[in-house]
């Protein structure tokens, strides 16, 4: 989605640049994304910041006095980056795990024993869920 379309979708004309999103952004304080600049930049069709330095904590969305879904905007920017193949290695790895096993993390062989000692049933491993393999293969995606 192009920046102009995003600006319309998220109704960025509502932004008054009060910077409340940035003041409440944990990442901005440490040199990461600056949410109000992302909103302004996309609104003006010139944003070239790095959306992967956002935590997706949604605090910007929670505090915006105009109700702008700032985190949703950043998510859309990340989707666009991902479409171009620009994906941080950690996310690429976790995504690969999901596509292969249906889980995002490796499951140690001892986990069932641990669960048993806590009175829990065996872990439900990824492909055991009916239909999951098909979803993982992308068959359920459009």
């Amino acid at each position: 989605m192009e920046q102009g379309t995003l600006a319309e979708k998220f109704e960025l004309e509502r932004c008054i640049q009060c910077k409340k999103c940035t003041r409440n952004c944990p990442s901005a304080k440490h040199g990461g994304i600056v949410p109000n600049e992302a909103v302004l930049g996309v609104r003006e069709g010139r944003y070239d910041g790095d959306p992967w330095t956002c935590l997706m904590c949604h605090r910007c969305s929670m505090v915006c006095p105009k109700g702008i879904e700032v985190a949703g905007l950043v998510l859309a920017l990340r989707n666009k980056e991902a479409e171009s193949g620009n994906i941080p290695e950690r996310f690429r790895r976790v995504y690969g795990n999901f596509r292969q096993t249906g889980d995002t993390m490796s499951i140690a062989g001892s986990v069932d024993e641990e669960r048993n000692s806590l009175g829990l049933t065996k872990i439900c491993r990824g492909p055991e869920v009916p239909g999951k393999l098909e979803i993982m293969s992308g068959r359920g995606t459009q």
Binding site: I87, V94, T141
Partner: peptide, 22 residues
């Protein structure tokens, strides 16, 4: 259905279509 929720931070960013499907 005890499966991954397709985690909202990284995975949803990487593949929004898969997130919708899951």
């Amino acid at each position: 259905c005890n499966m991954c929720c397709f985690e909202p931070t990284g995975l949803r960013s990487v593949d929004p279509e898969m997130w919708r499907s899951v």
